[in-house]
Write a protein that binds this DNA or RNA. Sequence first.
DNA 1: TCCAAATTAGGACAGTTGACAATTTTATGA
DNA 2: TCATAAAATTGTCAACTGTCCTAATTTGGA
Lengths: 216, 216
Amino acid sequence: MDGVPKLVTDLLMPGREGGYAKGYETRELILRTALHILIEEGYRAMSMRRIAGACGMRLGNLTYHYPTREDLVRELLNAVISSYEVEFGAIVHAPGLEPEERLTRLCNLIIEDIGSKKTTRLFPELWALANHDAFVYERVHELYDRARAPLIEIIAEMRPDLPEKDRLDLGLFISASMEGLTVFAGYQMPFAQRMPAVEHIAIRSFIDIVRSFQPA
Amino acid sequence: MDGVPKLVTDLLMPGREGGYAKGYETRELILRTALHILIEEGYRAMSMRRIAGACGMRLGNLTYHYPTREDLVRELLNAVISSYEVEFGAIVHAPGLEPEERLTRLCNLIIEDIGSKKTTRLFPELWALANHDAFVYERVHELYDRARAPLIEIIAEMRPDLPEKDRLDLGLFISASMEGLTVFAGYQMPFAQRMPAVEHIAIRSFIDIVRSFQPA
DNA sequence: TCCAAATTAGGACAGTTGACAATTTTATGA
DNA sequence: TCATAAAATTGTCAACTGTCCTAATTTGGA
């Protein structure tokens, strides 16, 4: 937990003065525990009783803080998505660097995150949930839009001659392409130990395609 | 169901002479129904009672054909994976075509499949399941290995000068990259109507990177 | 036709789930 | 100190889950 932003207090209630309202430490604990179970054991295992037990509290107390399971899931999702938005938002501003170098760094950072167990486990769960839950769909969709924004910004710097439509297409391809690595990063063999080489190929490919793209 | 291969009879028991054993039509129906529910409503909704109900049979009858839920899930997975293997296996042999043209066709076919609702819904479910189920993990892993084989074959034709390791890396990048489109193909906006353009960018990018790759 | 096997139906079981209500404990502030 | 609200406990509820068992029915072959 060292330095990791707290889900609720730091993200859902940023910079609240005079401390936080009572019970927010508990809500915080609940969400972190729920997320842990979701990542380690999957959505099916993330029952109210399982969460309560892992928190060391009784079911009734959990439903006091989150009356329904849907309440809990929604706040968890908001917190998780917010944490990713904060992470990617920090990349946008890196003055004094060539756009290609910034593209490389951005891709490196995203791919590094993609390689983490948290992301490789969490996002497949979210994709599956999004298929049948409009709220999850909405939030994940929103996250991708925000994550794509700095990417498209850099593309615009590299190719000011392109119409916006083409820049969007390039951004969509690159982001989708990187997202695909999430699926494979979860596999141990033969992908895991080849990840650095594949990452290198990916970034080279991205730079090449942006540099050489010819509008139809 | 016109022309669509039957899950069990056509794939798990291909070319069985003298017809199929009794009860295989029922097992067929069960698997198709289960798959339909899995795609349309998700893994959670795919309960034994739900499947039986959708098949127009009683629970006891379903458990006669599949004593445990795990039996059903495993055979369903085997059938689904087999159907994809059959699909991709047909691509390998297309004599008299330049390797680049074959790469383009292969990518087109995969991307076309990726755009189908069946695939965009099913695979996120499988990824999520694979995270916490060794059997699902194994089968999905296997499928990707098989799907990558023809791709790497074409890469070998295009770049016989490269060591095998580099060809594998290129194949991994391209397949992972295409798989990433699955995630986004499920989204209605803004990706869906941009899919053709992104597909074009993707294939151009793949050809370029294979053609111009320089070993370290 | 008739027997035996395959199939279907129906019921029951223990376990789990989310939600809720009544209650007690704890913390807070005047 | 004490009243008040917040927090946590305990127990209950109907609904649902997978599994198992037995009886009825249908089917196919001799």
